[in-house]
Design a protein around this nucleic acid. Structure first.
Length: 969
DNA sequence: ATGCTAGAGAATGCTTTGTTAACT
DNA sequence: TAGTTAACTTTGCATTCTCTAGCA
């Protein structure tokens, strides 16, 4: 029985796992990855609507799709859910709390809930016979709360899954997430870069470097080949392990990795950078920023289509663990033999268990998993394509044999490994504290990422890379390496790719294929130095058109990188010591070592000093070298630009659709044309390929007017296209000889080469030239007739009208309202000479208007006060008369009280609040407390009233002196 | 088995310059 | 009577994106 979890289950489970991982996570990149994932999932809400208690669902990844015909595109996958209700019912439900936390003994291992969860996360489930499944079946209390097996959906129903497209909002969100993730990863890179500059770290690395390697790099013209012994030494002396769960600074992690001579890929890459820098090589730390997708689709689809082979990261981590972990053991053919290594490893493991620091936790994982891998050694080693670079002949032999292997064979091997690894995972140590994401990267580290890519690389790998049946997404991808500046390369010097972790020198051409095979796209490759950064994606990405759409708007990205580029440029220039004499370099080595040993500053101090130090170095050492640095940077920029302009022609037509360099006529849009039509750069499927620069956008005359351009006289349209039916209808009814439309309803389009700057008629005698609608279309300043000015002020046309100045309403655009577009006006256009007069009058007018409004507001306020007080009085009187002194709690209602009152003040006030009301109000305001608190009811006797006929105002007096003036109708 | 192409179908985005009746 | 305001109604095509069948 093959089962898969659905998307809800997956994402829900992942969120739980993420929570656990949060604790374990060490890598900032991972944390940000997860945070982004969470955010995206939450917003999209696709993964959040699952049942409760499904956190522990198993995910069965159809790893081998071949035998049951399940396609990996998510359409034909059996979407069978495996939850755990029944197990729960059998055992777990009895003591769920205990189950969740207690350790379970079984099968010779101990595991915790967390572990089992992670194991689940870390395992690719294969058929019903999965060891883990068996284990769980045998031990139903194994930290599992809920088991439900649902076969609610048939493969066919999966096929009918509605395709949900991302909304605009989701796209915006995805872009924001992408940006934030980029910034986070940039920050991470800078942190690592800074630690690589740490003199203590550098000194420590140097101290373990064999003496004979110290002197091989002091050639004034460094060649990439000269790095090989060093790289091989590093490769053979440092091993990649899974990360530790503890959170700690990268500095201490690096120190720890150095001490143990093993660490994550990131740490080891950083160590190699530190080593190169200690040797005074100009070195950058390079990282692929594997950011969240800029398009929501991928992830939406991913989470939606759990059925697909694009299973969640957790699952891939699993496969990472299973596939790649074993490789680490035999990844280095030159390293000690397997058995040897295993012994060392075991020793290390034991030692590390006792070790006071936290470095060691993960080591045991590696070695426990190694045995199954060992058997595959022979098969795996030769799959390492990179090793062609530096490998010995024996590897070449094996490579040849590998070359004859079919992909299916390779998959079989992988699956075999998975099965074996799954068994290994059952051992308790395996997953403790493992961060799945780290595993991902680590396994990448561990094995040479490129092993799996061997075949793909040969086949001009696409993003698909190896069959998804391997569950291999983003596994083993090269993520970190170094770039060393070799002055002896080429004529001008060159930045050389150095992946010391994998023992690779100058393998830049292979990075793309390796990454592609691991489903990592080279969207951003950033080199860090001197706390700065530079985008060097062009160096590694040969197929820019494939990643262009996956990158953020270059304006934004360039703006972000601009300050970092300066820093980077300063550092890589200032650190150059290539031309120093050998003796000097040796002395410096000694100094570094000495400073590291005898004069140890605090790590914080160190790190904070680094930039200053390098800056001061720059100042002192390289005032004359700045030009050298500048030229080096310029040369590199030119190199990258050259790459950008010399990208090979894509072989498939669709790549030309949005290609930045090339175009074929077939994929031009309706409003595009080739001008000039040539030169032809090549052919694709028989279609001539032209430079993209030849593609011109065409527009109608009106459209060009908006840009402040007009068509030259006697220019014929470059292209005539059919007009939309709707427009045709409108324009035919209005004017058959409409300028832009011929009698057949076609639109005439013009190109930029047919245009000249707009020449609008001048304003003459204070008259604004207007269009046929009596207005001026102000799309931009260029559209203003000469001699006029656009005054964007509200109500300014009143002023112009009052002053009898000629003006035209300024139409600034359209808005779509009530199913049609409506012009939007903003201000007026007047002749320049009236501008000041209008503005002055406008200011006066606005002042007067403000004063009037203020007056009106005041009058209204007075009126309302009067109403309020009148109603209070009335209510009080009514209360006295009928309420037995009890104040009613009902809200006052002025209208009601007025209607019952003898004093008809409300209605009169509404119409016209007389001045005298103010007096009355004032008086009342002066003595309201007396009126209200004395518990005295005013009595207005008829004989005490007076009536002013002039103003129709009746004045009523109470014996207490209180009076009310009422205007009578 | 895989990748490419063409085409279908759906979603998205651009388009774009009133009228009438009630009320003040 | 003139001016103001609100309700009315809610297209249709081009482009883009995704998927699929067919072919090499």
């Amino acid at each position: 029985m093959r089962t898969r979890s659905n998307s809800k289950q997956s994402s829900r489970k992942e969120s739980t796992v993420s929570a656990i991982r949060d604790v374990d996570c060490e890598s900032l990149a991972d944390m940000s990855n997860e945070a982004v994932d969470k955010l995206v999932r939450r917003v999209k809400g696709h993964g959040s609507s699952g049942k409760k208690k499904q956190d522990n669902r198993l995910q069965y990844d159809s790893v081998s799709t071949a035998d049951n015909g399940i396609k990996s595109n998510g359409k034909q996958v059996v979407d069978a859910r495996v939850t755990w209700n029944d197990l729960d019912a059998r055992g777990l439900a009895q003591d769920p709390a205990a189950n969740e936390n207690s350790e379970v003994e079984g099968g010779g291992f101990r595991t915790t809930f967390q572990e089992s969860d992670q194991e689940m996360d870390d395992i690719d489930w294969e058929d019903g016979s999965s060891p883990i499944l068996d284990r769980i079946k045998n031990h139903p209390g194994d930290g599992i709360r809920e088991v439900t097996i649902e076969f609610s959906e048939s493969p066919d129903s999966a096929k009918q899954k509605p395709i949900r497209r991302a909304t605009a909002e989701e796209k915006v969100l995805a872009e924001l997430v992408h940006k934030v993730h980029l910034l986070c990863l940039l920050a991470r890179g800078r942190i690592i870069d800074r630690v690589c500059d740490d003199p203590l770290i550098q000194a420590s690395v140097l101290s373990i470097l064999p003496a004979h390697l110290l002197n091989i790099l002091v050639d004034s013209k460094l060649h990439a080949k000269a790095l090989s012994p060093l790289v091989h030494w590093f490769h053979n002396n440092f091993r990649v392990v899974s990360s530790l769960s503890e959170k700690r600074s990268f500095h201490s992690a690096l120190a720890c990795a150095l001490e143990a001579r093993e660490g994550t890929l990131e740490e080891l890459a950083a160590l190699s950078v530190a080593l190169f820098r200690a040797l005074k090589l100009t070195t950058r730390f390079v990282s692929i920023l594997d950011v969240a997708s800029i398009k929501p689709d991928a992830e939406t689809y991913e989470s939606l289509s759990q059925n697909t082979s694009k299973v969640h990261r957790g699952i891939f981590n699993t496969s990472t663990l299973m596939v790649d972990r074993p490789k680490e053991v035999f990844m280095s053919p030159k390293s000690p033999s397997c058995s040897e290594k295993k012994n060392v490893a075991e020793t290390l493991t034991k030692a590390s268990c006792k070790s006071k620091d936290n470095c060691s936790r993960s080591k045991k994982i590696q070695f426990n998993d190694s045995p199954p891998a060992v058997e595959l050694k022979g098969k795996m080693v030769d799959t390492f394509p990179y090793e062609t670079q530096n490998n010995t002949s024996e590897e070449c032999v094996t490579k040849k044999s590998q070359g004859s292997k079919r992909k299916g064979d390779l998959e079989l091997e992988m699956q075999l490994q998975m099965a074996m690894s799954a068994t290994a995972v059952a051992f308790p140590q395996s997953n403790k504290g493992l961060d799945a994401k780290e595993l991902n990267s680590n396994s990448s580290d561990v094995s040479s990422p490129f092993k799996r890519t061997r075949k793909i690389a040969n086949e001009e790998s696409s993003s698909q890379g190896i069959s998804t049946a391997l569950g291999s997404r983003k596994i083993g991808s090269p993520l970190y390496w170094a770039e060393v500046y070799c002055g002896g390369e080429n004529l001008t010097g060159k930045w050389v790719h150095v992946d010391a972790v994998h023992g690779i020198v100058d393998g830049e051409q292979k990075v793309e294929a390796a990454a592609a095979a691991c489903k990592t796209s080279l969207r951003y490759v950033v080199a860090f130095a001197g706390l700065g950064a530079k985008d060097v994606t062009r160096r590694y990405c040969m197929k820019w058109y494939k990643i262009a759409s996956q990158r953020i708007n270059s304006l934004w990205w360039d703006a972000v990188l601009a300050p970092l580029r300066e820093l980077e440029s300063g550092a890589t220039g200032g650190m150059a010591h290539l031309e120093k004499p050998q003796a000097e370099v040796s002395n410096e080595h000694e100094n570094v070592i000495a400073s590291g040993v005898s004069n140890l500053p605090m790590p914080n101090e160190l790190s904070s000093n680094v930039p200053k130090e390098s800056e001061s170095k720059n100042e002192v050492e390289s005032s004359g070298r700045n030009s050298f640095a500048a030229s080096r940077n310029t040369i590199e920029d030119m190199e990258l630009e050259t790459r950008a302009l010399t990208e090979p022609l894509p072989t498939n037509q669709q790549a030309y659709k949005n290609h930045s360099l090339y175009a074929i006529e077939k994929w031009l849009t309706k409003c595009q044309i080739l001008h000039p039509k040539g030169p032809i750069l090549g052919f694709c499927s028989g279609h001539p390929v032209y430079p993209r620069a030849c593609v011109q956008t065409l527009r109608t005359k009106e459209r060009w007017l908006r840009e402040g351009l007009q068509v030259k006289a006697k220019e014929l349209p470059a292209k005539v296209v059919k007009q939309s039916g709707k427009l045709k209808k409108v324009q035919f009814s209005e004017d058959n000889d409409y300028d832009e439309t011929d009698s057949k309803g076609n639109n005439e389009l013009y190109g930029t080469w047919q245009l000249e700057p707009l020449q609008l008629p001048h304003a003459v005698n204070g008259i604004v030239p207007k269009n046929e609608r009596g207005q001026v279309d102000v799309w931009s300043e260029k559209c203003l007739p000469p001699g006029t000015v656009h005054l964007r002020l509200p109500r300014v046309f009143y002023v112009a009208k009052r002053l009898e100045i000629d003006y035209a309403p300024a139409m600034v655009g359209f808005e779509f309202r009530n199913g049609r577009s409506v012009p939007v006006f903003d201000g007026i256009v007047v002749c320049n000479e009236f501008k000041d007069a209008i503005l002055e009058a406008y200011a006066e007018e606005e002042e007067r208007r403000d004063a009037e409004e203020k007056k009106r507001n005041e009058a209204q306020a007075i009126c309302r006060w009067y109403q309020l007080l009148s109603s209070i009085i009335t209510r009080q009187r009514l209360n006295k008369s009928y309420g037995n002194g009890l104040l009613p709690q009902m809200p006052s209602n002025v209208q009601n009280t007025n209607s019952q009152s003898d004093v008809h003040v409300g209605s009169q006030c509404d119409t016209k609040p007389p001045e005298r009301h103010k007096d009355a109000k004032d008086r009342k305001l002066n003595s309201p407390s007396m009126t209200l608190t004395d518990d005295h009811e005013h009595v207005f006797l008829v004989e005490d009233q007076s009536f002013d006929e002039e103003t129709s105002t009746r004045t009523k007096r109470c014996h207490c002196g209180f009076l009310v003036q009422v205007e009578e109708l």
